[in-house]
Structure formats: structure tokens, C-alpha cells
């Protein structure tokens, strides 16, 4: 069981976490916008997450926390 917490308000929607995720279970939200106008990242299949933290390690804004 893994838990990925994304500080959506601070996410700049760069998509590097989407690129880094080995399970291909991240995307930039198609529905949400934060107050800066970015589509924040989100996990599409939380149950498939392996808590490798590749997303967090590539995030330039350090907005992702990963727990297992």
C-alpha cells in the first residue's frame, strides 16, 4: 500500500513526474486548475503505486511526499 500526497497548490504542472513514473500511473489533471493556473499532477491508479518515489525525486518544486 503506497500513498502519494501532492501539494496541488504548489504544483507547476511541468509533467516531469509523469515522465519519471515507471508504472505510468501519473497524469496532469484534466479537470483541476490551481490558483496559479496550472493543471496539478495526480495519481490515476493509487493501488498500482510501488512507492518508488521517482516522481518525488524528479519534482523540481518538491511538492510530492511518498509513504508506504
Amino acid at each position: 500500500m503506497a500513498k502519494v500526497t501532492i501539494n496541488e497548490e504548489r504544483c507547476k504542472g511541468c509533467g516531469l513526474c509523469v515522465r519519471a513514473c515507471p508504472k505510468k500511473i501519473m497524469q496532469l489533471s484534466k479537470t483541476k486548475l490551481n490558483s496559479k493556473g496550472y493543471h496539478p499532477a495526480e495519481v490515476t491508479e493509487p493501488e498500482a503505486c510501488i512507492a518508488c518515489a521517482a516522481c518525488a525525486r524528479t519534482c523540481p518544486d518538491v511538492v510530492i511526499q511518498v509513504e508506504r
Partner: peptide, 27 residues
Amino acid sequence: MAVVFKKTEALTDTVMHYCPGCGHGIV
């Protein structure tokens, strides 16, 4: 749950001014 990754205390809580996707934040 055990924390696998969280933000270090050696960074302040200030939002970085870098453009989206800039490598500076990673380093």
C-alpha cells in the same frame, strides 16, 4: 505508514521562483 520521501528541513518553505520543469529545483 513509513515516509519514503519528504521535503528536507534544509530547504525553506518559500515557493521557488523557477519556471515549471526547471532543473534548478531538483538540484
